[in-house]
């Protein structure tokens, strides 16, 4: 595949980099990344990956755009209110970069759908907002040996880690089970600064890009935490867990399953919620 003059100009700032170059840009153009959740994290991820020329980007979310999303979900505009988030995201991504193929999945990602969904992608990104989805994505990716980026954001904080099969612990090694429903606050109850999605989502996009071009060190075996109030980043080493229920030596989890989503995290009247079941 030869670059067109337009592509050379569009991707010039990548191609100029020694670590990317023409080869790396081709890897990006041939790369396939799935983003689960088109919300606070998913929005910047989708924008940067589309701009970077990642060839095929899947985006999964059941919801429609709501006014309360616009404080942080920068891929959607006021005119998109009521539109399916995946459609709104696709339109913005293709307006930025027509090179990119955007696959939309307006579905609730659950145990029944996730294995087929992730199958065709090189790298998966968790941009969901509830523990049930985060554990489901972890388990499915471990079972299918897919690398993925996990992240969570809340108030003025955020954290992320990257799983690569055989290269470090999974999310379940660190947090064995979801906390009981409503034990830990979510953004919906506790709030979040919109820019937090930008900070952490951009870091997730960076992990996907590094994975695709095969350069640099990923956050495997590390949890990167960010506190916006103290402006402190910390990279915490994560031990593995030999008895992990999904990636350990004798796994008890051999297929994905659904946890119950806490009642207060379910879609409320007139509100929208990433990846929540339809009620």
């Amino acid at each position: 595949m030869a670059f067109t003059n337009e592509q050379l100009e569009r991707y010039s700032r990548h191609i100029l980099l020694k670590e990317v170059g023409a080869k790396g840009q081709k890897k990006l153009l041939n790369g396939k990344v799935l983003i689960i959740g088109a919300g606070g994290l998913g929005a910047p991820i989708a924008l940067y990956l589309a701009a970077a020329g990642v060839g095929a980007i899947g985006i999964a979310d059941l919801d429609t755009v709501d006014l309360s999303n616009l404080q942080r979900q920068v891929i959607h505009t006021t005119a998109d209110i009521g539109k399916a988030k995946v459609q709104s995201a696709k339109e913005t991504m293709q307006a930025i970069n027509p090179d990119v193929q955007v696959n939309t999945y307006q579905i609730y990602v659950n145990a029944a759908s996730i294995m087929d969904l992730i199958q065709d992608y090189d790298f998966i990104i968790d941009g969901t907002d509830n523990f049930a989805a985060k554990f489901l994505i972890n388990d499915a990716c471990v079972l299918q040996k897919k690398p993925f980026s996990h992240a969570g954001i809340l108030r003025f904080g955020g954290q992320l880690m990257t799983y690569v099969p055989g290269e470090g612990p999974c999310y379940r090694c660190v947090f064995r089970e979801p906390p009981p429903p409503d034990a830990i606050p979510t953004c919906r109850q506790a709030g979040v600064v919109g820019a937090m999605g930008g900070v952490i989502g951009s870091l997730q996009a960076m992990e996907a890009i590094k994975f695709l071009i095969g350069k640099g060190d990923l956050l495997t075996g590390k949890l990167l935490t960010y506190d916006a109030l103290t402006m402190e980043f910390r990279r915490i080493k994560l031990p593995g867990r030999k008895d992990c229920a999904v990636c350990g030596e004798h796994p008890s989890i051999t297929e994905p399953f659904d946890y119950e989503v806490p009642a207060c995290d379910l879609k409320a009247e007139g509100e929208s919620h990433e990846n929540s079941p339809e009620l």
Binding site: G40, A190, V192
Partner: peptide
């Protein structure tokens, strides 16, 4: 010693 906290938000 490190403390690792649940953080479930993302939307």
């Amino acid at each position: 010693i490190e403390f690792l906290y649940f953080m479930g938000g993302g939307a």
